[in-house]
């Protein structure tokens, strides 16, 4: 199988062709490992879990951003493969790109649980009360593995490097939609910005390439709706009712545990 890889060594960039043995059941990552081990030790690419849950091996495969570890050769339906580093990032070496901006954008939207009473997060004796239906409102957006494919696909990131990008915005919405979170107003101030939600023009490419079905485009449109409601109708809260902590059940009502089915010998 012919593989053409976009190489870069810090100074110059070039395309390099390799001829590799491949089975249809191989993934692109298998092919890359084979190249590195048998043909060219200098090839640089990231990898870790090899099962599509860590997000290391994002790259552009035949023109479309994808995870190398979960793209099988048979799915590609082409004679040759063309691999490039992710678009819209600074390339460091070969297929390795600089994710510093990406992680900073994510951090800038305050992607953590915020409560009016922060003590509830740290020292409460029980968990928050969240029903399975409430879980459904945000779990999809929590699937994000931070691979960065969405930013590579996004046509807006290509022309506005300051745009927060689908990943960060979707994560902001993940917390806004979470009934346990009360940081709505804090985040709205960050998101309601010309480089925030309003820079998104809904090309949907982020959702199209997302390897985990996070659907960032959906999250961003919902976010716009929330921002509009907040600004135009002066709604001070997210449309989600905050969850409450479960109270510890009174011990008197608790049933007695059944006797153990094993014999304790010696010991305390």
């Amino acid at each position: 199988m012919k593989v053409r890889i976009r190489r870069f060594d810090g100074q110059k960039a070039w395309w390099q062709d390799y001829e590799v043995d491949a089975k249809p059941s191989d993934t692109v990552l298998d092919i890359l490992n084979r190249i590195r081990e048998k043909h060219d030790h200098t090839l640089a690419f990231r990898q870790s879990c090899q099962m599509g849950s860590c997000g290391s091996c994002g790259m552009v495969i035949n023109g479309l951003p994808a995870l190398a570890c979960q793209t099988r050769i048979s799915e590609l339906k082409t004679e040759s493969i063309r691999l490039e580093p992710l678009y819209n990032y600074k390339v460091i070496k070969d297929l390795v790109v600089d994710l510093t901006d990406f992680v900073n954008k994510h951090r800038s939207v305050k992607p953590w649980m915020i409560r009016k009473n922060p003590q509830e997060l740290e020292e409460a004796p029980m968990e928050f009360k969240v029903t399975p239906d409430q879980n459904l409102t945000f779990v999809q957006f929590d699937y994000c593995i931070m691979c960065g494919l969405c930013l590579a696909a996004c046509p807006t990131v290509a022309i506005d490097p300051l745009f927060l990008g689908p990943q960060a915005l979707a994560q902001a919405y993940r917390y806004i939609a979470d009934p346990r979170d009360e940081g709505f107003e804090e985040r709205i101030e960050i998101l309601d910005d010309s480089h925030g939600v309003w820079r998104c023009h809904f090309a949907g490419a982020c959702s199209y390439v997302c390897p985990k079905g996070v659907d960032p485009a959906k999250a961003i449109q919902y976010l716009k709706k929330e921002v509009l409601k907040y600004r135009l109708l002066h709604k001070k809260k997210a449309s989600v009712k905050p969850a409450e902590l479960i109270q510890k059940p009174p011990p008197a009502n608790a049933p007695k545990p059944p006797p153990f089915d094993f014999k304790i010998e010696g010991g305390e």
């Binding site: 649980m113 409460a124 004796p125 968990e127 009360k129 029903t131 779990v139 346990r180 969850a243 479960i246």
Partner: peptide, 28 residues
Amino acid sequence: IRLIERWGVPWNRRADGRIEQRWFGGLS
């Protein structure tokens, strides 16, 4: 478990909002 729940883990839930649990190998 409860601490990381409050930090955002979406544990599977029971209908009453408490945390669901399941069987695993070697547990009684």
